[in-house]
Amino acid sequence: ALAAVIGIGLFIFIIHGALNQDSKLTWNKVKPGDRLYAYDGFFKDTILTEFTPFRLLKPIAASDIDTMKIQEWEKVKLKAQLDTSLKPQLVTAEITYKVDSLFKSKSSFVGIYVGKDSIHESGFIDHWYIFKPA
């Protein structure tokens, strides 16, 4: 059983490292205001036709309910039924970068870097960049 646990742990460690490997090219160099570009693999691989960023969602908190323009009794109700077990999560954004469009504009420019974040809600990848879209 111990060997199995160690084996699984090693497997996760290796996969995690492999998935985040490319982020090491920029992770310790990037600074706020830098221009972020798409990895050039997007323009070589015919399987990749678009690149979709993500938005971060957070669970509704009592303080958020206070700012809602609803009646007081509705606020009390929402707070009484508040699910506090929710965790932040990433969902695909409403915008997409089409590879064809990037070729037309002759640029892989994605947006302006704002900061880093490490979120564990989307598989093994935990190196995320926060950015303002181009």
Partner: peptide, 30 residues
Amino acid sequence: LDIPKGYILSNDNYYMDASDARLEEAPQFK
């Protein structure tokens, strides 16, 4: 944007996998 019940947008920012980002223009466009 498909926001599940119980969640709200955390901020106005967008997120990308750091492995997909580069600090230089792709070679195809240089």
